[in-house]
């Protein structure tokens, strides 16, 4: 693969939700994300941030356009191949943490490696390391319901990076956290970006959060502005 290729690229992305009144959530978006970026998608609620993240994260298929990773189009891959692609290439952090409630923090972090078929010893070591990066090495045996919201989101970040993805997509990662905890999470994401070269693409409408991004892409009514 050519080094000139961006890590991820959206070309003419469009997403229209069918129904009585068709809603165009994303319209004609072109976006390039380079390796090592710490980029925010900004915009008010309903502007299409989550939809665009879902499209770039291959969780949803575009109505028009395509998503490319290192020059390779992935938008039309079969569901199983897309799952494999996400498993190897992407990490996700969700607004509502979305940890598996029946697994401990350590087991949650391990899970992408379980899906990859990594052996128990190696994946435990990797999960413990990821937990230590987010400062929760002492909380590995706790189930999510025994962790605070901020701790749960840190575990979610550890889960997103444990398999060393090319990019982490985070949809409003601080929206459910208080400002102090949110700031701490952003510190963590920045540290991972700087110290471990993890590429982040995250969405937010919070100016305080957006001010931490190195690049901000504005989305209004499903279209990129500025």
């Amino acid at each position: 693969m050519s080094k000139a290729q961006p890590l991820a690229e959206a070309r003419g992305l469009e997403k229209i939700y069918p129904g009585g009144t068709k809603v165009a959530a994303v319209r004609g978006v072109d976006l390039r994300v380079e390796r090592g970026e710490f980029t925010a998608l900004a915009g008010p609620s309903g502007s299409g941030k989550s939809t665009l993240l879902n499209l770039i994260g291959t969780l949803d298929r575009p109505t028009k356009g395509e998503v490319l990773y290192e020059g390779r189009s992935v938008s039309r891959l079969p569901a199983s191949d897309l799952a494999d692609f996400r498993l190897r290439t992407l990490g996700f952090v969700f607004q509502a943490y979305n940890l598996i409630p029946v697994l401990t923090a350590l087991e949650n972090v391990e899970y992408p490696l379980v899906l990859q078929g990594v052996g128990p010893g190696e994946r435990r070591r990797a999960a413990q390391e990821a937990l230590s990066w987010v400062g929760l090495e002492a909380y590995g045996d706790r189930r999510p319901d025994l962790l605070s919201g901020g701790q749960q989101q840190r575990v979610a970040v550890a889960r997103a990076i444990v398999h060393r993805p090319a990019m982490v997509l985070a949809d409003e990662p601080t929206a459910n956290l208080d400002s102090k905890t949110g700031a701490a999470l952003l510190d963590l994401m920045q540290a991972l970006n700087q110290d471990h070269a993890v590429t982040f693409l995250f969405s937010s409408h919070d100016p305080a959060v957006l001010s931490r991004a190195r690049r901000v892409v504005h989305l209004v009514d499903g279209e990129l502005r500025g």
Binding site: G57, L59, A79, S80, A83, D84, R86, L87, R88, G91, F92, F94, N98, I100, P101, Y111, P112, L115, Q116, R159
Partner: peptide
Amino acid sequence: VREFGVLMAIGARPRW
């Protein structure tokens, strides 16, 4: 359903 969505997002195949 949401949890299955998370599993699929982190790389679980539909068959899995």
